[in-house]
Nucleic acid binder design. Structure first.
Lengths: 148, 148
DNA sequence: TGAGTGTACTAAGCTACATAATACACTTAG
DNA sequence: CTAAGTGTATTATGTAGCTTAGTACACTCA
């Protein structure tokens, strides 16, 4: 399920890249399953195919999907990107820890947050909803589909 | 000391905002000390005064500095932005924790990282350090703190 | 063969960023 | 008071990135 947020100041292709990678990471999109075609997803989201193409290009470069010309785009095996993703996550965690420390947060508070977070049931969606990635509830201050 | 990184893809004013706020947070710039003027910092960094002005505007909006028209820009008391900064740090830490968890990092690994980080001596410069931002002019030495 | 796929390219419009050049009101030192 | 230094605002210009639009080509598969 992808929703374009036009209040988001980031470029569209970046939003799409982020949301698709999240869907892949959390398991909502199974390995080797097929992604919507450039043209069909563009139509569903009411944006230009070039923008989708750019998002897919980025996802392929990041290792989350692979492309078969003439056939489509497919989700890469978890083992392919797992390592790199974990490395990024570790770095971001370290940065956040340094910032937390400099902000005056106590070590105890940080440890408690970690415990709490790992106790919680953070969505690791079950691979049962392939279907539509688009949600037609987008209203950029105008009616849908109309671009001058 | 501020260095412009032209390989950085972010806007200049954002780089400057970030580095100045870091200097303020870590204590390299004392509360109520005077920042370089818009024009002088612009000249030292060889960029346009408007860009510095924009950075200062952002810093003021974030609460890190306050402005006295006709006099200059000054570092805000720590207590003014401490709370908001801690709140941001906490949120970023939570995001990083969720990401770490989803990447497969174990709770033990995360706890170890936190311990390690808090054991380390992460630069929290003590007031009195050289406040030089480029090569010049921060300490007027006689600032009787006149602010609103 | 034809439909669907990824891919590449050009052109145009829009926005953000950065610079340049002024201009004005204010504060302070003289 | 004057003059220098300060923040602030404005307009104009150039550049770059994002997005759309339209077209085109090579590939895969029923």
């Amino acid at each position: 399920m992808i929703v374009i947020d036009y209040r988001d100041k980031r470029p569209l292709y970046e939003q799409i890249t982020e949301k698709l990678s999240q869907l892949i990471i959390c398991g909502a999109l199974e390995s080797n399953s097929k992604l919507p075609s450039v043209r069909s997803l563009a139509m569903e989201l009411s944006i230009n195919p070039n923008t989708i193409q750019r998002a897919y290009m980025q996802l392929e470069q990041d290792g989350y999907i692979y492309t078969v010309v003439g056939r489509g785009n497919y989700v890469t095996d978890r083992s392919e990107w797992q390592k790199g993703y974990q490395s990024v996550a570790r770095q971001e965690l370290e940065d956040a820890l340094i910032k937390a420390k400099s902000s005056g947060l106590s070590l105890e508070a940080v440890l408690a947050m970690a415990q709490s977070c790992y106790a919680k049931d953070n969505a690791t969606a079950s691979p049962g909803d392939p279907g539509n990635l688009a949600n037609n509830a987008v209203s950029p201050a105008k009616e849908d589909g109309q671009h001058d």
